[in-house]
């Protein structure tokens, strides 16, 4: 469970990234943060995860959030399993090293994420998608039921995007709370119960269905965006389409 009440953050007093922002992420639900580049998505998720302190209002977490940063490789070539074991850091004393239980928890998390086979591989040699899955496993290994993910699907190919999205959906079904920032409205459509739209005119929050609509998304990104309902072999689906080049005429 994550709850923001009247939260505000700014890098200077005149320049608020967001102000008076309230929303909550109950267990078993996903809230997606959408917005153009530079709108403050990363700042918001970092505040939610407790890595930045809000200057106004309050952020309440039922427990310490597991934070999943964007995968950017790593300086040292640690094996994937060692990376996941590091997710246990807050359960391990300052002068101690991980023990059998920590390794078991890490292996279990890798199994749950479906990357047990990668345990012995060196992290920098993994593909971007695999690295992202290792970082998610690391957060899962920490044992928190609240995950905050910063653009987990950015930079991944289609197959890996599907893999990450399905994994996140499985985690939510097991009762976890997720706050996810993303550049893909489609991913929000698939995953999210609620959305936070960080536009130039301010931040809008609410249920995903009504907010992920043509007018709102067009205003948010400043280009014409349409949602399209279609029939996928009997399953009704909805997707977001951008008529590229349409504005040029």
């Amino acid at each position: 469970m994550l709850e923001l009440r009247g939260a505000g953050f700014g890098y200077s007093p005149q320049n608020w990234v967001f102000k008076d922002l309230s929303f909550s992420v109950p267990p078993g639900t996903v809230t997606a943060v959408l917005g153009p580049n530079g709108s403050g998505k990363t700042t918001l998720v970092r505040c939610a995860a407790g890595m930045l302190a809000v200057q106004e209002g309050a952020v309440r977490r039922s427990e310490t959030a597991g934070y999943v940063p964007q995968a950017r490789g790593s300086t040292f070539g640690y094996p994937a399993l060692d990376m996941v074991v590091m997710g246990r850091a807050r359960h391990i004393g300052v002068f101690r090293s991980p023990g059998t239980r920590d390794r078991a928890a890490a292996l279990q998390a890798m199994d749950r994420v479906g990357i047990a086979a990668l345990a012995d591989r060196l992290f920098p040699t993994l593909s971007g998608g695999e690295q992202q899955l290792v970082l998610i496993a690391r957060a899962v290994a920490g044992g928190s039921r609240l995950l905050v993910l910063d653009e987990p699907s950015t930079g991944l190919d289609l197959k890996n995007q599907v893999r990450v999205l399905q994994l996140l959906r499985e985690l939510v079904r097991s009762g976890m709370s997720l706050l996810v920032s993303t550049h893909h409205p489609d991913h929000a459509l698939f995953l999210a119960d609620s959305v936070v739209l960080m536009g130039a005119e301010g931040v809008v929050t609410g249920p995903a269905g009504p907010l992920l609509a043509d007018a709102q998304l067009s205003a948010l990104y400043g280009v014409r965006v349409s949602t399209l309902n279609y029939d996928d072999a009997g399953t009704p689906r909805r997707t977001v389409v951008t008529p590229f080049g349409a504005d040029e005429r």
């Binding site: 310490t64 940063p69 790593s74 040292f76 850091a89 807050r90 920490g142």
Partner: peptide
């Protein structure tokens, strides 16, 4: 080891 991942990751890990 944890610190060698970088400040951001270390902070994310508590």
């Amino acid at each position: 080891n944890v610190l060698s991942l970088g400040d951001d990751d270390a902070a994310a890990l508590g």
